[in-house]
Design a protein around this nucleic acid. Structure first.
Lengths: 130, 130
DNA sequence: ATAAGGCCTCCAGTCACTGGAAGGTCAAGA
DNA sequence: TCTTGACCTTCCAGTGACTGGAGGCCTTAT
């Protein structure tokens, strides 16, 4: 299977797949003409990667998960540990963003938003204190 | 004021301040010895930038906000528009992360996490369907 | 035979810094 | 006065995870 079909199957851009090969996440064979030839296993792994990335796992985490995925004797505790670590990070990000959102929502409501120059948003960012 | 004092005042690393100068967000004077000399206005602007960045505004947005901040005849509607745009982006990110969190929380709970190899987390990422 | 489209590699750019090397400057202590 | 150490400077390179584009080969259809 050529790269654009593999891309359609896995739901990833061809460029991304080439990049994944470059960093060693997939190792497709090559046809005599130099074209990448993706096997079913390659497609499966690419699909796995697409889903893991969609869940926000980093490339390094994906590398570890993929190795576990291919290791049929793995301990599920390993996987759970990675997932839990990632989950904590996601929750930190949600907390950060939620704090930003609350502050900004407050400021946006406080700003009348007309053609006058006085603006609580700018004041809060430039004022003497936070 | 030298760069490390400016950094302490604004709450930014010196490296970041040099970068901000490089991209034209601040333009401190120079002492005869070549050291950057930060005025009160510079410090004020750096503090403004630190706060805006802490609220997640991009550098481009900060550039616009800073210009409005210095424009005493600005219309607050302009500021509000930028803030609202950013707020929408934050809410999109929160929604994405929340979806990830829900999926992952579910998977983490479903995985027994011992030394056996079967694992719903990997299965969900590698299975035939999502 | 030719034209369109797919494939290849390699290089550069993104965003917002961050680290490090090599070297100039300054203030305090011996 | 000399030295030491902490500053400061510039410049270059790297981060993560791609993405865009140039230049060129290969395949397929007309």
């Amino acid at each position: 299977m050529n790269i654009s079909d593999a891309a359609a199957q896995a739901g990833l851009p061809p460029k991304t797949i080439r990049y994944y090969e470059e960093i060693g996440l997939v190792t497709p064979d090559r046809d005599p003409n130099g074209y990448r030839a993706f096997s079913d296993v390659d497609i499966h792994n690419l699909t796995f990667l697409a889903r893991a990335r969609a869940l926000g796992f980093s490339i390094q985490e994906c590398r570890a998960l993929l190795a576990l995925y291919e290791d049929k004797g793995r301990a599920s505790a390993e996987v759970k540990k990675i997932a839990k670590g990632h989950l904590e990070e996601i929750e930190r990000k949600i907390a950060d963003l939620t704090a930003m959102r609350d502050t900004l929502t407050h400021l946006v409501h406080a700003c009348h938003g007309d053609d006058r120059p006085d603006c609580p948003i700018l004041e809060s960012m430039g004022g003497r204190e936070s």
